[in-house]
């Protein structure tokens, strides 16, 4: 049909008035009361929704109504990516045949699986065998629409947590970052092992003694070992990028940092590098002042000289 407004409407004013008979009437009356019932056939099966006859044999059903549900199992489904005007939901949803617990036949209804953009494909968790429950309308009139739709059983809840902290860096780290904010890399020399620890912690993790003697290190160093990362990271320039352990000149241990300014497949163990600082006006009290390390035009350091820092 063209997208223009329709030029003819067929509508019985006020809607048809249908008599429902005892079996469907009982079902809809129960539905209006918020209950789902089925009817038992002579051979013992339970039909939901009930009919006055056994669909297999044509015989009258018994007058025994039995409560079913409240949970049902999806026996098959279709997915509506672009709902029509008369559909019960105005966002993508499924049509499903639902066999209520205690029933032997299935009921057709809409199945709401949450919020999807128009045109979205079916979610992976929608599948035959899925357990679903009715969502009841508050105002009910005795119609199948008294169940607004079905929805999956609760299998998961989302648990947003947001906790607020006021963290401080600690004195040693604060001093280190103060240095970085001035373009300097500061470490501590341990009085026991004589090694320079950078970033310093105010103590030597190996010897367990306090450290206070500050040493300023150059922003040049050597790549000891590295990885080529093919998964994107917001801090890296592009994929692939290189994460490397860098032994700053004069330091006793390596720092983990990005290496850029060279194709990833040309990075080498022993390669000489220098910090690439952000423009001075962007500097803050943060390690992010150093964007990454870039190669220096110097010969590689032999493996023997770095093998003890791996």
């Amino acid at each position: 049909m063209p997208s223009d407004d329709p030029n003819h409407i067929l509508e019985f004013p006020g809607g048809y008035t249908r008599s429902v008979g005892p079996v469907i009437g009982r079902f809809l009356s129960e539905l209006r009361d918020g209950r789902l019932v089925g009817v038992r056939t002579r051979d013992g099966r339970v039909l939901v929704p009930p009919t006055e006859y056994d669909p297999d044999t044509g015989e009258d059903v018994t007058d025994e109504f039995v409560p079913v549900g409240p949970v049902g199992t999806v026996t098959t489904w279709s997915w509506v990516a672009r709902p029509r005007k008369n559909h019960p939901l105005d966002r993508p949803f499924a049509w499903a045949l639902v066999r209520m617990d205690g029933a032997d036949t299935a009921l057709l209804h809409a199945l709401d699986l949450g919020v999807f953009d128009e045109g979205a494909g079916p979610p992976k968790f929608l599948r035959t065998g899925m357990r679903v429950r009715p969502r009841w309308r508050v105002e009910r009139s005795g119609a199948i629409g008294d169940i607004e739709c079905f929805q999956p059983e609760v299998t998961m809840i989302t648990a947003p947590t947001r906790l607020e902290y006021r963290l401080r860096s600690g004195r040693a780290l604060d001093r280190f970052l103060e240095g970085v904010s001035q373009g300097k890399i500061i470490g501590h020399r341990c009085d026991v092992c004589g090694q320079v620890i950078v970033p310093m912690k105010g103590l030597c993790p190996k010897d367990g003694v306090p450290t206070t003697q500050e040493v300023e290190l150059p922003d040049t160093g050597t790549v000891t070992t590295f990885a080529v990362n093919n998964l994107p990271d917001p801090r890296a320039p592009e994929v692939p990028f290189v994460s490397a352990y860098i032994l700053l000149d004069g330091a006793g241990l390596t720092m983990l940092a990005l290496v850029a300014g060279i194709p990833a497949d040309q990075v080498r163990m022993g390669m000489r590098v220098k910090a690439k600082w952000r423009p001075r006006e962007e500097w803050g009290k943060t390690m992010a002042n150093i964007r990454w390390f870039e190669p220096l035009d110097e010969p590689d350091v032999p493996f023997d000289a770095i093998k003890d820092y791996l």
């Binding site: 600690g170 004195r171 040693a172 912690k201 003694v209 306090p210």
Partner: peptide, 19 residues
Amino acid sequence: EDTGLSETELLAPVITEIK
């Protein structure tokens, strides 16, 4: 109140003293 020490810095003197 926070005196500007990290957890490790709070702890280190305690460990040193007990040693």
